[in-house]
Amino acid sequence: MFEAKLTEGLILKKIVESIKDIVTDVNIDISPSGISLQAMDSSHVALVSLNLSMDGFEHYRADTNMVLGVSIANLAKVMKLADNNDQITLQADQEATHLKIIFENPKTERTTEFNLNLITIDSEHLAIPETEYSSVVTINSGEFSKICKELFSLSETVQITTNTDYVQFSVEGEVGSGQVRLGHNDSEKKEDQTILEVSESVQQQFAIRYLNMFNKASTLSSFTRLCLHQEQPLVVEFKIDNLGVLKYFLAPKISD
């Protein structure tokens, strides 16, 4: 038996919106300590990893580990039934064939229920090695979204360079070439801060269209954390207050 109730259901709605363009069918792993999922995009360039702790739920019960195979596209359609102020409860029996999703609005007394059919997914679970990232950049999520969006209109690829003084996003395309450079900024206004933690400089190239898809999660968190290592995929991380973390991994491009 699994049951989890989230008071701020909007968070779950936003999570589904933030991953639906990247992954299609996903195994959701339920454990007594929380909910997690890991899935690659169809071209095996990016990987989504979500971890939600039971502590963030108003009520959480999972007697055993369970795997719930879900079509994210269909889950997104069901989530559209939810009002932004709804509480969301997820329920599944042992050996379940469907996931029951209940939306409740205590103010308007409206309740919506949907039984989403589960599917069997044969997906590969990848082992993500523990990595000591040599550059970690914490940046306002809205600002990072904007930078990626605008640069994508100029080039498909961005080169991210870090050093102890700044992080630089540079593009080169038919239109021309240029860069956005952000220095370390720990101003009093927290939302303006850009925090650089660089032990070793990194220079890598990435497909901007993936970054734009990841940035849908910017509504979940005021800050985006970029973790870089010269030999590893980029991690774009969004912390979800009191509940967990949504991470996207993106394999770098190599210059021709």
């Binding site: 095996h44 990848l126 590893q232 995929p233 394999a251 491009k253 190599i254």
Partner: peptide, 14 residues
């Protein structure tokens, strides 16, 4: 996509 590496190159199967 030219020059695009696969995520599977970095993360092995469990």
């Amino acid at each position: 996509m030219s020059g695009q590496q696969s995520i599977m190159k970095f993360f092995g199967s469990k």
